[in-house]
């Protein structure tokens, strides 16, 4: 490996960042606007965002949709929804995606499951990020004493056997959507906190923070006005990546029977129920599974795109 190869990428212009000597003619576009422009140009991001938007609409309009389809999530169609042997019916004109072993319409149940997944996934992710940012910011900015306390706390949380803990907790207090959100948030914030702490430690050493301190700015002002805006990029990326994780987490809890209680549908408990029937009713397992995979994938791809848009250095510079 030669020296020249080692530094092969040195000093190349980054297309998305203004070049030295390249005075930008446009009127003060903020870094956010620039990121937004880059994001809109990214086809994968646009497709994923459209898919997620569709999911949100489906979740909001679950009731009218169910009415329009003609079944409710718990309606058991004894006529067309179940065979004479009491087995699920495959996709047909009555049930677009087939039925489950109780004759319930899978499409409708997936639609209601979307609602659960999004509500739990998004709220848990947002809650985790909020806690993580506050704790991480304090740990990173307020100096070694605060840092060692909070960093140890995060270590403790991260070393909890979370599934065991979740199952035990739910057994004691009983399952509910709120408990599920709290459990997921509780086990996710520490990872965010660690990342935010690391970022804060790096930002703290920047000259503009020194400048603010030399002007006499207090800790709170510096944390909110100078540090936080520079954390937003990684935080936004983290939210988009944490949502799918939380959705999977929710599905896992429901699958294990400590999340959403039947008969309320969630993708997790549908997959769990389908296990006993997948040999005779593939649709029972495949459609909820596909919903989970596609949703997770869409959020993950969007998260990647958001990261590329916010941090042009990771952009595939020369792919154009």
């Amino acid at each position: 490996m030669s020296a020249s190869e080692l530094s092969e990428v040195a000093d190349l212009p980054d297309p998305a960042v203004p070049q030295p000597g390249v005075e930008r003619q446009v009127e003060g576009r903020s870094p956010w606007q620039l990121a937004w422009i880059r994001l809109r140009r990214d086809r994968v991001a646009v497709v994923c965002a459209a898919f997620i938007l569709l999911l949100v609409l489906v979740a909001i309009l679950a009731d009218p949709l169910a009415n329009w389809i003609g079944y409710n999530a718990t309606d058991q169609d004894q006529v067309n929804g179940i065979t004479a042997d009491g087995l699920p019916v495959g996709p047909d004109a009555h049930h677009l995606l087939g039925t489950d072993n109780l004759g319930r319409d899978i499409l409708v149940r997936i639609i209601f499951g979307t609602r659960v997944s999004l509500v739990v996934g998004v709220s848990a992710a947002v809650a985790a990020v909020l806690i993580g940012v506050i704790v991480g910011l304090c740990a990173g900015y307020l100096g070694p004493v605060v840092d060692s306390v909070l960093a140890r706390l995060m270590d403790v949380v991260l070393s909890f056997p979370f599934l065991l803990f979740a199952i035990a907790l739910v057994t004691v207090v009983g399952p509910s959507e709120l408990i599920e959100i709290l459990v997921i948030a509780f086990f996710s914030w520490a990872a965010v906190g660690r990342i935010v702490r690391g970022q804060t430690l790096a930002i703290r050493e920047r000259e503009y923070i020194e400048a603010a301190r030399s002007l006499g700015a207090g800790n709170l002002r510096i944390m909110v006005i100078d540090v936080l805006p520079n954390l937003m990029a990684p935080v936004i990326v983290y939210v988009t990546l944490l949502i799918p994780v939380s959705i999977v987490f929710e599905a896992t809890l429901s699958y294990l029977g400590v999340g959403i209680i039947p008969p309320t549908p969630s993708w997790g408990n549908m997959i769990s129920d389908a296990q006993n029937f997948y040999q005779v009713a593939w649709w029972y397992l495949v459609f909820p599974g596909a919903a989970l995979v596609l949703t997770t994938l869409a959020f993950n791809l969007l998260g990647d795109s958001v990261r590329d848009a916010l941090d042009p250095r990771t952009e595939r510079l020369f792919a154009k």
Partner: peptide, 17 residues
């Protein structure tokens, strides 16, 4: 007492107007 810093890139917060 005020200070002027070396790095014209690092001494201004990139996210602020």
């Amino acid at each position: 007492v005020q200070m002027i810093f070396q790095d014209p890139y690092g001494s201004l917060n990139p996210r602020r107007r």
